[in-house]
Nucleic acid binder design. Structure first.
Length: 344
DNA sequence: CTTGATGATTCACT
DNA sequence: AGTGAATCATCAAG
């Protein structure tokens, strides 16, 4: 036993020799059975039987994003040259905008290249390390009991450790692409000053607006709804909160201005509802419980386009623009305040 | 450059 | 903690 414990202190050759000697030692079978017994008693083999191999949601998200940005997916051609040709031959684009685009494409290709070489390195290192550990364990199984399940578990642990590295790689790649993509062209200096405000994508704004106007009587998404929106729009939950905060206040300040937009989204949502079945966003959080807004509850399709001045406001908001009973400024008009929910 | 739009931040309130 | 309101900072169009 002492020989085994001190084996790591010796030189490699010495250790190899000693190992061979130990393997052939007459006491080896006895030692093996003793180790088996110890193991059984301590219940080591039973521990952590559950092997939860669920996919990391963050990794999935990053994968999707990289795929969408064209960094992950299948290779489109051969490097920067292909990128340039792709940019120049991509439909009817004006010369300078295609020039800008080609620059962007080149940068994207660079990122893509770095990403792929790093990913390759990562995968190689991972498999190398895994096989190394497996070999070690197999080797050890000659002297101590090692079940296949244990090897499997060890491999799982290694993979999980490595996947954090992978996540980091993907995350930084995403960041690089994000910095690159919005303005198509951006000096590298901007890496330092990330205080810039960037508009959300059209898709994101549409998603947010859809929710806002289809919940106009109570545009306060729950935490759950915020998360869902954040996911579907590719922004963070706090950005969703910011957006709704801004939207509520700006809507309230100038309802007339938003009338057109409101009608547009009401129409849109009505169409979706009419087409039935699961819409991409959360069902409803109006509190009224029922799902019955087929053109009545929150939507206000009947309102004709108002030109600037106030005529018929959506029922969600009262004349002074209150949703809740929150601090209500000098109302003056009819204090018809109640829960504006369920406006039918 | 000006101006309006918009995302973020801050502060007070409940 | 969530929100309204004011404000700041940046973007984008003219």
């Amino acid at each position: 036993m002492q020989q085994i414990m001190t084996i790591t202190d010796q030189s490699l050759d010495e250790a190899q020799a000693k190992k061979h000697a130990l393997n052939c030692h007459r006491m080896k079978p006895a030692l093996f059975s003793v180790l088996c017994e110890i193991k059984e008693k301590t219940g080591l083999s039973m521990r952590n039987a559950q092997e939860d191999e669920s996919q990391d949601p963050q990794l999935v998200r990053l994968d999707n994003m990289l795929l969408a940005e064209g960094v992950a997916g299948p290779e489109k051609g051969g490097g920067a040259a292909a990128a340039v040709s792709a940019a120049t031959s991509s439909g009817g684009m004006s010369p300078d905008s295609s020039l800008e685009h080609s620059d962007y494409k080149i940068k994207l290709t660079q990122i893509r290249g770095i990403y792929h070489t790093e990913l390759e390195k990562y995968e190689q290192a991972c498999t190398e390390f895994t096989t190394h550990v497996m070999n070690l364990l197999r080797e050890q199984s000659r002297t101590r009991p090692v079940t296949p399940r244990e090897i499997e578990r060890m491999v799982g642990i290694i993979h999980r450790k490595f996947s954090t590295i992978q996540t980091q790689l993907k995350q930084s790649t995403c960041e690089a692409v994000m910095i690159l993509s919005p303005a198509s062209l951006m000096p590298v200096i901007d890496l330092m000053s990330q205080r810039k405000r960037r508009n959300f994508s059209k898709q994101a704004t549409e998603g947010l607006n859809e929710y806002f106007y289809s919940h106009l009587s109570n545009p306060y998404p729950s935490e759950e709804a915020k998360e869902e929106l954040a996911k579907s729009c590719g922004i963070t939950v706090s950005q969703v909160s910011n957006w709704f905060g801004n939207k509520r206040i700006r809507y309230k300040k100038n309802i007339g201005k938003f009338q057109e937009e409101a009608n547009l989204y009401a129409m849109k949502t009505a169409l979706v509802v009419r087409q039935g079945n699961d819409s991409p966003h959360t069902p409803n959080s109006t509190g009224s419980g029922s799902f019955s807004l087929s053109g009545s509850a929150d939507l206000f399709l009947g309102v004709p386009p108002v030109n600037g001045d106030q005529a018929a406001y959506p029922m969600g908001v009262q004349a002074n623009g209150n949703w809740n009973g929150r601090n209500s400024p000098p109302a003056g008009a009819s204090p018809h305040s109640d829960h504006s929910d369920n406006s039918d």
